[in-house]
Design a protein around this nucleic acid. Structure first.
Length: 581
RNA sequence: GCGCCCGUAGCUCAGUUGGAUAGAGCAACGGACUUCUAAUCCGUAGGUCGUAGGUUCGAAUCCUACCGGGCGUACCA
């Protein structure tokens, strides 16, 4: 029954080699063969090879070449038909072989379908999240975290090793403002007393400060004094600082746990702002930097089309870029990483351009191994989020809200779920909606987020894909399905089944593309495609009790393959697949 | 001013190393539930791809100019 099995990736490779062979035999030339592409829907074929690139060498129209190649090609046993259509050569693979290959590979590789093994994996540090410790995480951070998680999963899926890293920006005027507000207004209360999370507690203080500061200028003076005291290591100030930052971090930990953010390396600005100074003095010695009369240190980046950039203040204190410089050098030296990816918003494009050029000028060979994965801003209907004014979408509130909406739908669902399971499922579906919504976008694009309209459980959403996955899990469970059950790919003959198989076949390519340009939206889109194909199939064909046990088993095998693919993709996106909803 | 990003259906977005008839979702309208989970499916309608030039066999995609929006251009982060 299962005769000729070939790994899915080999179809493309085989096509290229057949074309190469034919070109040698027919024309006596050996040009580069482009990768096969996916034909449009009206063409019944899995692969198409465009012949434009041969036109120049052969001095013939692409369509003529395509026709000639088809005529001269020796048939392969897995071809059904090969036909030229204009400048394209279309390859239709024998259904039985195609179906067998795709389903067998999914059933054996499961969620590793499409993953790649690297013989020499890179060690890649991915820095993401890196929040200020004076307020709760908001929607902007959610985008950052969700993207960071997905990128790490993506890199690992294609065989690299990652160090998830973050820097807590726990030092500076922002936290001092909250500290002043605490002394003035908090009356010694704690987050526990107020029954709120530590980050929200401190965030409220920060907003309180900003509200009162315009009318009370002495508040700002106090905050500045607080910063000086902190730098001097004043005990009382440090204790207060420690107390507040600790509360914030406890709050973050809860939110991170919900979002699924994990960090192998957590650095604090309060620890890392010093090493950069060492780099600055080295740079001065190498004459890469120069000293101005007032004592500040600069670098001229005009040969890169940038301006002069300060790397040390006149009072000798570090700047943001000083710290990043020090941290980067430490990471490459101490951790032996091959690459570093910074997941940071697009407003810092200039900063990272400057940073990487400075590293290059300092002569570090790994300067080109640093990447800034920038992502667009998140806007609300009323404009940009402003944490000073408390005008933000709070991460915890957002998750809670989506969870509630999800629970609400569950109440009215036909499918009954045990009371005890509802909470975790509602949480998972709520998070799916948020994460999928964010990851559907190209990271480069700004997101205009309307809380009333943006998050939905219908159409191209996380819930849609989860729903498809849950349906299949339910089927498999009802049938007591196991991989060892006998099935026959030749029985899967409907056009809906064919669409499913083609979508599955293209998944590894979508994964690869996603990783190539660090763009998880490609996977997100492809999962939608897979789920859509399955849902369409599901409504017009029976799977269980369809009157033919072998057909039933064959459809179950295909359904299981779909489930593995969806599960794989969801996991890469950082979305927890559910088995019921 | 200068630099970078963006402009595709009413709305939100795919498609951009030039390639087959520019695709989805939402909203609108018309259909399918005594359900293998309707958080689903099927159908209809909706487009001078910001504008104008250019490059060529071919442009949403590349180049130039302009219009509109955003972000930068800190001894902030």
């Amino acid at each position: 029954m299962k005769g000729f099995v070939m790994k899915t990736e080999e179809f493309g490779l085989q096509i290229k080699s057949v074309i190469a062979e034919t070109l040698v035999e027919t024309y006596g030339i050996r040009p580069d063969i482009p990768d096969p592409v996916v034909p449009p829907e009206n063409i019944d074929a899995e692969y198409a090879l465009p012949c434009f690139t041969f036109a120049k060498a052969l001095r013939q129209a692409p369509a003529k070449i395509a026709a000639t190649i088809v005529t001269g090609m020796s048939p392969k046993k897995w071809f059904d038909t090969v036909f030229a259509s204009g400048p394209y050569i279309n390859f239709k693979i024998k259904d039985s072989i195609l179906f067998d290959t795709v389903i067998s590979e999914l059933l054996s590789r499961k969620v590793k379908f499409g993953h790649i093994h690297q013989s020499e994996p890179e060690l890649i540090l991915v820095e993401y999240s890196s929040p200020n410790t004076n307020k709760p995480l908001h929607l902007g951070h959610v985008r950052n975290n969700v993207l960071g998680i997905a990128v790490i999963n993506l890199l690992q899926a294609v065989g690299h090793k990652c160090i998830p890293a973050t820097i807590l920006n726990d030092r500076g005027i922002h936290i001092c403002k909250a500290m002043v507000a605490y002394k003035r207004f908090a009356e010694g209360k704690t987050p526990n007393d107020m029954k709120i999370k530590g980050d929200q507690f401190v965030g409220n203080l920060y907003v309180l400060f900003e509200k009162n500061a315009p009318k009370n200028p002495e508040l700002m003076d106090e905050a500045r004094q607080m910063l000086r005291d902190w730098e001097m290591g004043d005990m009382e100030t440090r204790e207060l600082w420690h107390k507040l930052t600790h509360w914030v971090q406890q709050g973050f930990d809860e939110t991170y746990a919900r979002l699924g953010s994990h960090f192998q390396l957590v650095q604090r600005e309060s620890d890392t702002y010093l090493p950069g100074k060492q780099i600055v003095s080295e740079g001065l010695q190498k004459n890469v930097f120069y000293l101005k009369d007032d004592g500040s240190v600069w670098i001229d980046l005009s040969d890169y089309g940038l301006d002069e950039k300060a790397v040390l203040r006149k009072d000798g204190t570090s700047l943001y870029i000083t710290q990043d410089l020090g941290v980067a050098v430490e990471r490459f030296n101490d951790l032996q990483i091959d690459r570093a990816i910074y997941v940071v918003g697009s407003e810092q494009i200039y900063h990272f351009k400057a940073l990487f050029h400075i590293i290059e000028k300092l002569g570090y060979t790994w300067a080109d191994k640093c990447d800034h994965l920038s992502y667009g801003m998140v806007y609300l209907p009323e404009g940009k989020m402003k944490s000073r004014e408390g005008k933000v979408i709070d991460a915890d509130n957002l998750i809670d809200k989506m969870k509630e909406m999800s629970r609400e739908i569950m109440e009215h669902s036909h499918f009954q779920i045990e009371q005890s399971e509802r909470d975790s499922i509602a949480e998972a579906i709520g998070l799916s909606a948020i994460k999928y919504y964010i990851l559907r976008f190209n990271p480069q694009k700004d997101i205009h987020f309307d809380p009333e309209k943006s998050l939905s459980f219908e159409g191209a959403t996380g819930a849609y894909i989860q729903y498809c996955h849950a349906r299949i899990c339910s089927l498999l469970q009802k049938a007591n399905w196991t991989e060892s059950k006998t099935w026959n790919p030749a029985l899967l003959i409907s056009k809906e089944e064919k669409s499913i198989i083609r979508a599955l076949l293209q998944y590894p390519e979508a994964l690869k593309k996603s990783e190539d340009d660090l763009n998880p939206s490609r996977i997100a889109a492809h999962l939608w495609e897979v789920a859509r194909c399955f849902n369409a199939f599901y409504t017009c064909h029976r799977i269980l009790d369809c009157g033919d046990e072998l057909l039933s088993q064959s459809r179950l095998a295909m359904a299981a393959a779909v489930a593995f693919c969806l599960k794989s993709g969801l996991q890469i996106l950082g979305i927890k697949p559910v088995e019921k909803m």
